[in-house]
Amino acid sequence: MTTDDPATDRTGREDFPDWLRQLERDIRPGLAVRLRIWCRRRSRRLVGGVGVLLVLALLAGAAAYRSGHLRRPGPAAHPAAGPGATASPTAVPGPFAGTPAAGWPAGPAGIVLPPAHRAGDFTTAQVAAGLAQVRATLLTARLDRPFMAGRSPDPLLRHFAPAARASVRKDWTTETIAAYATRLAPDARLAPDPPRVSGRITYQATRATNGVRELAVTTNFVWVYGFRDPGARSGYSVVLLHDTVVWHLPHQDDVAVASRGLWLHQMSSYGWGLDCGAIHQGLVRPGGLDPAAAPFPEDPESLYDPDHPIALPTHC
């Protein structure tokens, strides 16, 4: 077979032309020049070869894409624990496990405000502001850990009308405070889990005997607290507080500046799992049942129901 390429001899070996050999002896072209000449001679073959490689690459990529979608792997299965494997640690049940409060909302999520609507002479905006004020008071009184563990009523007093604060301060060291706020005993230790909360809020426009227009907001909540308890099998114990509180917000046009804001109108509550000696001082601490006391006539789990009557057959 013959070829028209002058740089190819009969043996098929490609070589440089004679004039380049002559120049090479005189100027010895560098590697870059040699490579450019070599590529020019083989441009057709290179283009064809690269085209083939590109086609093959595209076909391989399409095949891999189809394979990946048709055989998408499922979630990796956890290997069974063998002699040399370490099993995953089992989650330790929290303080509310096995109680009706286990599935309740945690902390603030349990305090849901009803939609605000006009009530009597209170506009929708005034109703919304009053509901928000009551909720903020509940967050401090029942859920704020620094306040509950503190020794000052000031964080709570700030939520009340200036003229109402003296009455709240008097309740601070009595069992009355437990009807609307939680004070922890110095040795009580809450679990890390937020308290569980269940209940509701309602409101209506009323008028006091002196003619003052008032927005009455009624809160009815069950609060369940988890405490660290080294003596218990689970390491925890729970305390339940159920309160019903009626809060009054007088119309700002009917009272003096010092009386504008939140007032306590009526409150009642019961507790379960409490230390009775501590609660008489307004302090909350977990405590066991008195073995000398008469058996409780109800199923204790019924006390978790916000619709349970506040009056109990027995109390501390």
Rank of each mutant, 00 (worst) to 15 (best):
G51Q: 08
P73Y: 12
I310W: 09
Q133A: 14
W19M: 02
H248R: 14
A205P: 00
A185N: 01
P146A: 02
P105G: 09
Y304I: 01
H117T: 12
A119T: 01
Q281P: 00
D154K: 11
A161S: 05
Q281K: 00
R135S: 11
V257A: 13
V92C: 11
A129D: 03
V112P: 10
A87I: 04
L312V: 12
A311K: 15
L59G: 07
Y203S: 01
G130K: 10
T173C: 05
I111P: 02
D4K: 04
N210I: 00
M267D: 12
G261M: 04
G107I: 10
G120C: 08
V212T: 15
G288N: 12
H117S: 10
Y203C: 00
K170N: 15
D187M: 07
P195Y: 10
R21Y: 15
A106L: 02
T218C: 03
S88Y: 11
T140I: 03
L56R: 00
V245R: 11
R135T: 05
N220H: 09
A178C: 09
A7I: 02
Q252M: 03
R207A: 11
V134C: 04
G61T: 13
L283W: 14
R183F: 12
S237H: 07
A185D: 01
A163P: 04
P89Q: 11
R207L: 10
G94Q: 11
G273R: 02
R42M: 05
A256L: 14
D26K: 12
H78S: 15
S198A: 14
V168S: 03
R196F: 09
V224I: 10
V33T: 08
R28Y: 13
T182L: 07
P194S: 02
P192N: 10
R28N: 13
S269K: 12
R72A: 13
V246M: 10
A57K: 06
L53V: 12
T137R: 09
D4M: 08
G288S: 13
A76V: 13
L184Y: 00
P93H: 09
L58C: 03
